[in-house]
Design a protein around this nucleic acid. Structure first.
Lengths: 195, 195
DNA sequence: GATTGAACTGAACGCACGTTCATATAGTCT
DNA sequence: AGACTATATGAACGTGCGTTCAGTTCAATC
């Protein structure tokens, strides 16, 4: 319904998503108005409704797209054979992917409570799917004797919380390179689950 | 200015803080109206202004009180002699204290961006103070040869993120007791920083 | 029993919200 | 050139916001 042929401007549709993502991440869904989003795009508020049904859909589409792409990207990541190798792949993938998309990540973790029930169920399902990929690695490693885990589910949540925390402080112009951050986190995770 | 002598009801002041804490934690600061808070207390919106200057002060006071009490409670916690003992004390304290006050914790971590600049500076300072208590333990342990940490600051943030994550899933009627959760987390932290 | 004053109500303030829609504009196609 | 269509405007809608305040209520005091 958008941008089939050129018109006043080009590519306004994607620009709306980008503006919403930026503003929702900075100020929170409830604190951002459609008029602010429109101003960021450079149009009037009414024009936004050529690209989204309503404000709620804007949030849902942002989160759904993020999680779909996250899961797809993980599918395509080389993983190695042993559980230890796959855990390292997961840690590095999670940090790297999340540092590339700080706004989308922030929204996906913070704005769950602003989703209407049906939308929440969809997003929560995708989030659980992603958690399960880590849980499967940890369980396999435990059964293979590579890891020692008193509670696999708890370890899953602990590792994800720890890794995701990187997005709250990492800066590209900061003291540590991404590779160094990945390496340090992986070392902590490796030791934490070690047999 | 409130509750010197009885009147229509009793103890409305503290009830306002409790109502605000509950609603801010559930729906987010920006999504909660003064009228909703008043309804939760059982009063009209105008009456709230006998107990708070404005909505922003309600948020700030909630966060400031939480962090002041958090720091005071840590000061009074027995800590042991070695860095390892103090780290265990910190992990158990952090989990236990946070599980006792899920709403206040949630607000303190999620609503920072809704603080006006001056208020933000105060809260951020208190948060940094708390972080420093952990960082000091980790550095001491590193210098004493008890821990191996490629980057003390990063380890501080990683441990706090991991421990705080417990508030997102723990339920009092869930599968694991608090003591068991504390023990499992402490074991992961202990191994992650081990020499 | 009159007075006081804190606590509260209920209406009002100006403003911003999400959303709609008639209208205008400007590219594309024949 | 003229018709078509996607796109955008800008005003308007009803609603709810944070906040204020004149007036009411009522327990405590003298």
């Amino acid at each position: 319904m958008a941008r089939k042929t050129g018109s006043h401007s080009e590519i306004t549709g994607p620009a709306v998503q980008r503006a919403a993502e930026k503003l929702f991440a900075r100020h929170g869904f409830a604190a951002v108005s459609m008029r602010q989003i429109a101003a960021e795009v450079g149009v009037q508020a009414g024009a936004l409704y050529n690209y989204t049904a309503d404000k709620q859909s804007l949030l849902f589409d942002l989160m759904k797209t993020h999680l779909d792409e996250l899961l797809a990207a993980w599918e395509e990541t080389p993983k190695g054979d042993t559980a230890t190798d796959r855990l390292e792949a997961f840690c590095r993938f999670h940090i790297s992917y999340h540092l590339d998309r700080p706004d989308a990540v922030f929204i996906a973790y913070m704005e769950l409570r602003n989703l209407e029930p049906d939308n929440f169920a969809v997003i929560e399902g995708l989030r659980k799917t992603y958690e399960t990929t880590l849980e499967d690695i940890l369980r396999a490693g435990k059964e293979a004797g590579e890891f020692t885990l008193p509670d696999t589910k708890l370890a899953t949540l602990a590792v994800i919380a720890m890794l995701t925390g990187v997005t709250t402080w990492y800066r590209d112009d900061g003291r540590l390179s991404r590779d160094r951050v990945e390496r340090i986190y992986w070392n902590m995770v490796r030791k934490a689950v070690a047999a």
